[in-house]
Amino acid sequence: MATMKPNLIEELIERVKAWPESAQGDLAQAVLEIEADIERGMYGATYTPTPEEAEELRRRIKELDDGTVEPVSYDEIKAVFAKYRR
């Protein structure tokens, strides 16, 4: 993409506020998908957890390994994302 002009994102956000609600919803979904792609490293950026997040991940992985908690299914995860991505 070409170099963005200063304040372009802010200008676009202001214009989007005047869009129909369904168009705003489509944009929000596209932004969430891009954000997920970024988190998966598709844009070269990867997420580095904070020390606290890393510790929480280690604790939860240990719980799974120990059998303290049961893993959830892919469909259960999809349902949670569907519920909160509205």
Rank of each mutant, 00 (worst) to 15 (best):
M1G: 07
T3E: 14
T3F: 09
M4K: 09
K5W: 03
P6H: 02
P6S: 04
P6N: 06
P6C: 05
P6Q: 10
P6G: 01
N7V: 06
N7M: 11
N7Y: 13
N7P: 05
N7R: 09
L8K: 05
L8M: 15
L8E: 08
L8S: 06
I9A: 02
I9H: 12
I9N: 09
E11Q: 12
E11V: 02
E11T: 00
L12C: 00
L12I: 08
L12Q: 08
L12V: 01
L12Y: 15
L12P: 04
I13W: 13
I13H: 10
E14N: 08
E14W: 13
R15V: 01
R15E: 05
R15Y: 14
V16Q: 04
K17Q: 06
A18L: 15
A18W: 13
A18N: 15
P20I: 05
P20E: 14
E21H: 06
S22G: 00
S22A: 10
A23T: 03
Q24H: 01
G25E: 15
G25C: 08
G25T: 13
D26F: 07
L27E: 02
L27D: 03
L27Y: 07
A28W: 14
A28R: 09
A28H: 09
Q29F: 12
V31Q: 10
L32V: 03
E33L: 10
E33H: 07
E33P: 07
I34G: 01
I34E: 07
E35I: 12
A36N: 10
A36T: 07
D37M: 12
D37N: 11
I38L: 14
I38D: 12
I38P: 02
E39C: 14
E39K: 08
E39L: 15
R40C: 09
R40P: 12
R40Y: 12
R40Q: 15
G41E: 11
M42K: 12
Y43H: 15
Y43T: 13
Y43S: 09
G44N: 05
A45S: 14
A45T: 08
T46A: 08
T46C: 12
Y47M: 12
Y47F: 14
T48H: 08
T50L: 01
T50Q: 03
E53R: 14
E53V: 03
E53C: 06
E53Q: 01
A54G: 00
A54F: 03
A54W: 00
E55S: 14
E55G: 10
E56Q: 13
L57P: 02
L57E: 02
R58S: 06
R60A: 04
R60H: 04
I61W: 09
K62D: 00
K62C: 03
E63R: 15
L64D: 07
D66M: 11
D66W: 04
G67E: 11
G67I: 07
T68S: 13
T68F: 01
T68G: 02
V69C: 07
V69H: 04
V69A: 11
E70T: 06
E70S: 15
E70W: 00
P71W: 13
P71T: 07
S73V: 03
S73H: 05
S73M: 12
Y74M: 10
Y74D: 04
Y74A: 04
D75R: 14
D75M: 10
D75I: 09
I77K: 10
I77P: 00
I77A: 03
K78E: 06
A79Y: 05
A79D: 03
F81P: 02
A82D: 08
A82N: 14
A82R: 15
K83N: 05
K83R: 13
Y84C: 02
Y84Q: 00
R85Y: 09
